[in-house]
Nucleic acid binder design. Structure first.
Lengths: 258, 258
DNA sequence: GGTATCATCCTGTCTATACAGGTTGGCCAG
DNA sequence: CTGGCCAACCTGTATAGACAGGATGATACC
């Protein structure tokens, strides 16, 4: 079952090689990438659908096969597409997989998959560190900490609950941000250069709060990533990142230096 | 065949495409990648050093510039190199942003904590690959595979259930081992050098078998690490590593920048 | 019916060539 | 010495053409 035929494209992409239009034009392989992402985000193609073959895209978009190939290969690297040699290229299924313990901006990750990012702020508070938090952030017990609790969503579905504690002595003004417009990551990396990070990964059973905020199924486990980041030898922030077990996995390749 | 008669040069790479050697030859851009990684791991080049330009590598390695370009671009994407348009390509700083999951011997891990390691062999069987397993190991459906199911214990308590599938065409004699005396890891790294590994990490709910073998609490989630390792371009083994959520976590720390 | 073969399509890789635009260092004129 | 110009080099992108090898369906043969 091959399903959908190629949705007639409005012919070629940018004004071909019109030399230099005043404003910078995205590279062609980027335009091909956007075109395919558009087919997915518009709903024209959904998971498991076959996308037009490289040669079809060559004809409809008026670019060379190597250019199409690069666009599709990168989308496959990003997990958006699945390529099967000799068969075709398909829209990957929904399971989200992020890179191994990497410190990245979740909004960028979601957008790179061609999906809509949104955030919901659950709570923003200033609190006093208990013994565990004080040890985790390297501050005195009872020190003042800023705490945010934010749900990051992909296409409106919860992808991560982020419980974050920030040491105001290192980065002041954290709670003044509008976290529906800027992610904690974006603010913090600008405020304090990231120099060291520590991760732990655990599987946990969700409590009632988690089930509610992440809209979890009854029999769904949670992947918990706990992260601390340092700048200038001091802990900038500690975060608990909770992910729905059925829709999220870490993945990555490891290549020993030859 | 042999389209690529290579204009031989001093330190060319593989013997071009010598038809079908029994073992698959890595693509040329992969060989370029390995060559550059070798310069770094050998200490010939260190952080901030400039690496040979694309055209130099073209001359030294006897490949086309597009092939070199792909290798370097991918290494830059991985954060190994830093490319500056118009200037050159440099070895990047030590990585702060990513931490690969390493492949380690669980017996060493346990012993390094000063604890007693023991293993219980649950099953050892030869079986035929179904479609999913065939895809995972890159073999034909119905191909023969060797499977081991082993519980690794720390001080007598289950720490990991390892479900492992081995391609006997790559490493024969896997099931002949006494896995209470040698771990699958120890046998396999000796039989086939580890050249690449892929991991995914998920949180899952345990089924009855898992609860029994890992002696899990009723409300305990499971951390599932799925790993594939390659040698000479072929999948040596695929493993499902199940860990009790309450007693296991992955962790990693990144060194500060110089 | 079953089976073997072949044409066709697909992705994956590789090459040779080309042009763009940025950077750098040297050379020359003022 | 300074400033401007330019050649040489670098990466980034794009193209056309080619072959390899897997997958697939049609066709011819037994």
């Amino acid at each position: 079952m091959n399903a959908r035929r190629s949705p007639q494209s409005p012919a070629a992409l940018s004004p071909a090689t019109a030399t230099a239009t005043a404003t910078a034009v995205a590279p062609r392989y980027r335009q091909v990438r956007s075109h395919v992402l558009g087919l997915i985000s518009s709903g024209t193609l959904v998971a498991h659908d076959r996308i037009p073959s490289e040669n079809e895209l060559v004809r409809t978009l008026g670019v060379s096969r190597m250019t199409v190939n690069r666009a599709l290969r990168e989308l496959a690297d990003d997990g958006v597409l699945l390529r099967v040699s000799g068969v075709g290229t398909f829209v990957a299924d929904e399971r989200v997989h992020a890179h191994p313990l990497e410190v990245r901006n979740i909004a960028d990750e979601v957008r790179s998959r061609g999906h809509a990012y949104s955030a919901r702020v659950v709570t923003l508070t200033t609190l006093r560190a208990d013994a565990a938090l004080a040890a985790r952030l390297g501050v005195a017990p009872d020190a003042s900490l800023q705490h945010s609790s934010i749900v990051h969503c992909e296409n409106g579905r919860p992808l991560q609950l982020e419980d974050r504690y920030v040491n105001p002595a290192v980065v002041p003004g954290y709670l003044k941000n509008d976290f529906t417009r800027i992610t904690p990551y974006e603010f913090l990396v600008r405020a304090a250069p990231l120099q060291q990070a520590e991760h732990t990964v655990q599987a946990v059973m969700p409590d009632a709060r988690l089930r509610r905020l992440l809209k979890l199924d009854a029999d769904e486990a949670c992947l918990l990533i706990r992260r601390r980041t340092w700048s200038d030898g001091r802990v900038v922030t500690a975060a608990d990142l909770w992910h729905p077990g059925k829709r999220y996995e870490l993945s990555g390749t490891f290549e020993p230096l030859a």
